[in-house]
Amino acid sequence: MNIFRLAGDMTHLLSIVVLLLKIRTTKSCAGISLKTQELYVIVFITRYLDLFTRYVSFYNTAMKLVFIGTSVAIVWYMRLHKVVKQTYSRDEDTFKHYLLIPPCFILALLIPLEFTVTEILWSFSIYLEAVAILPQLLLLQRSSNIDNLTGSYVFLLGAYRALYIVNWVYRFFTETHKIRWIPWISGLVQTALYADFFYYYIKSWKNHEKLRLPA
């Protein structure tokens, strides 16, 4: 474990804490894409299939359980909680997220890490995570005003994968000296998708003005 990966995991965890905080304290999920949250449930479940078959460390197992548990809890809040579900921006969250699943699955069949079910699903989850934020970014463009917690959530979510890229560079030079095409290219695509959000988020933060994304 290196500091970049720990920072990445903690940033990822913090993004989820911020989202849960927003939903629980404001009893609202306005501006949050349910479709992105549902994709994350699929990402975590397909990525952590080895949860009970391969023990890496307490930290690893604990974090996997937290990520699966919180992502399911968020979807539960947005779909079933009597108060929160009323605040879901249903008619703005229109990205056809199910269209993202077949290409990622086909890509995982064409370029898996290994031709085993768990590795094909692991590759699928890496590819899907790269594009899972798209419904959320589209929703942000449509939201007239983005509240601070939602903006922070998306910023932290983008920052975590950027920190993972630094971790991959660090590990390449200090440990493995091996190129890991699947996570690296997916991670770069994933982080690149946040590029314009990062630009407008940092600009709004510097100018102390409300975050607004151009439509």
């Binding site: 990966r5 995991d9 990822h12 990525r47 080895d50 391969r54 890496v56 460390s57 690893n60 974090m63 996997k64 990520f67 890490l113 290994e114 692991w122 993972y164 971790n167 590990r171 440990e175 493995t176 091996k178 890991r180 699947i182 996570p183």
Partner: peptide
């Protein structure tokens, strides 16, 4: 193929 230790990441 990926070295197994790389699968210690989340």
């Amino acid at each position: 193929a990926e070295t197994p230790e790389a699968k210690d990441e989340l």
